[in-house]
Design a protein around this nucleic acid. Sequence first.
DNA 1: AAATATTTTTAGGTGAGCCTAATTTTATAT
DNA 2: ATATAAAATTAGGCTCACCTAAAAATATTT
Lengths: 219, 219
Amino acid sequence: MTSSAEENYLKAIYKLHETSGAMVTTSELADSLKVSAASVTDFIKKIAAKKLVTYEKSKGVKLTDSGKQIAVNIIRKHRLWEVWLVDKLNFKWDEVHDIAEQLEHVVSNELIDHLDKHLGYPATDPHGDLIPDSKGRFAKTASKPLLDCITGDKVKFIGVADHSNNFLQYLTKNNLHLGDEILIESVETFDSTFTVKVSGKANKVLSKEVVKNLLVTVI
Amino acid sequence: MTSSAEENYLKAIYKLHETSGAMVTTSELADSLKVSAASVTDFIKKIAAKKLVTYEKSKGVKLTDSGKQIAVNIIRKHRLWEVWLVDKLNFKWDEVHDIAEQLEHVVSNELIDHLDKHLGYPATDPHGDLIPDSKGRFAKTASKPLLDCITGDKVKFIGVADHSNNFLQYLTKNNLHLGDEILIESVETFDSTFTVKVSGKANKVLSKEVVKNLLVTVI
DNA sequence: AAATATTTTTAGGTGAGCCTAATTTTATAT
DNA sequence: ATATAAAATTAGGCTCACCTAAAAATATTT
Ligand SMILES: [Mn+2]
Ligand SMILES: [Mn+2]
Ligand SMILES: [Mn+2]
Ligand SMILES: [Mn+2]
């Protein structure tokens, strides 16, 4: 059996590992799960015994195939619930994460399949993150930070790198929504401030901190 | 804080107490929660200390007002989730209880209010059970077992006394659905077998065991 | 290479929610 | 009223997921 705690560990390992490709360290996990390093050491020994991760003492852990499968399934559930909360219950995109953190642990593959159908098999969640299919496969998308674009580029805003409520609320307040078309008018070389035109409206000035966290695709 | 375990104890006490009006005994609770009597004694001492129940040693427990409030709120959540599973996700009425048992513990009053609205503020769940409002108030309904009716009565099938999958599946198989109109053609005095006409179709014969568990209202 | 700082592990505990076995209390039968 | 049966409580343990403090391993400075 897989407890909520176990699911959270596997998901955290997946998310930390996903980008770096490297082993996930005890302190990274302790940090991300907000538990002590000692607790992490304890726990990873248990999930290593269950062959959900490979553990190299004092070095870190890596998901096995079965561990990865569980992690991706939890992510699938989390993102589908977020879609439901936004699309069907009219929550805002900055209100859904914590609720989805609970819903993702509800046990029933039937439920998730029905939910997926009810939602019309969405490809992405309210934050633009890809939803893996029931086999755990992700679609491919070429997204990059707006920061990596140059003057004259015409792009589409399709995701966020920073998922904090702070950032999400900033975007809402400044009328930046997923799907918006962004034309880069100019880039200030000194501080990487971007001046952009969003969906043909008046120019907007975006700080480096913002453009770093806006994920876009060239159109 | 209220844990899932605590919520399940309070709900079980409520459901046992609801009908009998009397104190709920240790063994009743042990039975209904499928834990040992020793565990129950332990636990009720804890929730008594929290003033969620009044406990008379060796006699039993009774919910306090705040205990009852929590119990009713869990029941509200359970029933709303069941409505959602049937109405929106197309589950059958015999498939939803176990999933709702998990969903009812998701913490967020906002979520429940949004769900309630999404469902159109339903009055009853898929089994005909009343859904209390957000203040914990139940509507009044006069329902009684079909067994208590007599020949010539015209009634409406509005609920079940037995919630087992067995019974629910029996009803489905025999084309008896909530809302059906039932006309009592005759009652066999020897064994209380009822011969009825359901929604004007061909006569049906129902055993005492069945009519005892069919809740109806006279129309 | 040594000294120091950081990270990880080990050792020993805690509370929640469960258990069995033994004991005590309450109810029932004789 | 006694004996017997049933129900409830107490005593003592267990596992899970966490903790702190101390020790050991690894990394970084000097
Ligand atoms: Mn999220
Ligand atoms: Mn998301
Ligand atoms: Mn139910
Ligand atoms: Mn129900």
